[in-house]
Amino acid sequence: MNNRDVLQGIFVPGHIVSQLEIAFRMATPGIMIDLVNLVPEEDLHAARYLVKEALNEFSSSHKHISIFIHSPQTHQGKETITLLTDEKIDILRLGQINSPDHIQNIEYLIKTSWEKNNMPGIELVVNNLSTFRNLEAICNTSTLVTTLTISGQLREELAKQSDLDFDKVKKSIIEQAQRLKLTALDSINTNYRNLDTFRQDCINSKHMGFQGRYVIHPSQIKICMEIYKGV
């Protein structure tokens, strides 16, 4: 599946069975399983096995599968990759990639863990200034990065800096994505109660140049499909 066709999916924690089951059965084109931010450290070991078995159980769902994992340069990331080796995963979402050396080491690990015709692409999360400043060099070094995503953590870091505006940073990331022929995804909007506000944010996001975003609640799906895909 061309990554550009998959503009959004449901974002779910990898340690909660009921949410995984609902997400795999939901009518979204993709699913993003989080093994980083939403999973407590003490549940990570068991969550890896849950995700592995879920991938096998729901392999016929034909969803675009993305998994957010710790950087493979950490022991958590390495253990996750070891367990998920050769599973059918379309995208590995990775943050804390701050230099071309980082991406090279990570790609080596991925390339030695998956068969060539089954290899996941990388969604690079721009979640700190270091990644942002080295973005072009990182992407030019990479052969697996297909997508750039903004994280709310970047906004927090920028709030401490007076000379960088978040919207300008977002535009810069979108321009780089366009230049490098990568998909650009906006950050998650956790507002699922006020859908008018969410809708306006999606409209602004699309206007800026983002091609989609992940959703965290079913109420957001229809709006995203309408705004980003025109469906």
């Binding site: 069975v17 089951e21 070991h45 068991a46 890896r48 096995y49 849950l50 592995k52 078995e53 879920a54 096998n56 159980e57």
Partner: peptide, 12 residues
């Protein structure tokens, strides 16, 4: 739990 969940928890 469905069987895939029992298996996952058991393996962990």
């Amino acid at each position: 739990a469905n069987e895939w969940v029992i298996k996952a928890r058991g393996l962990a």
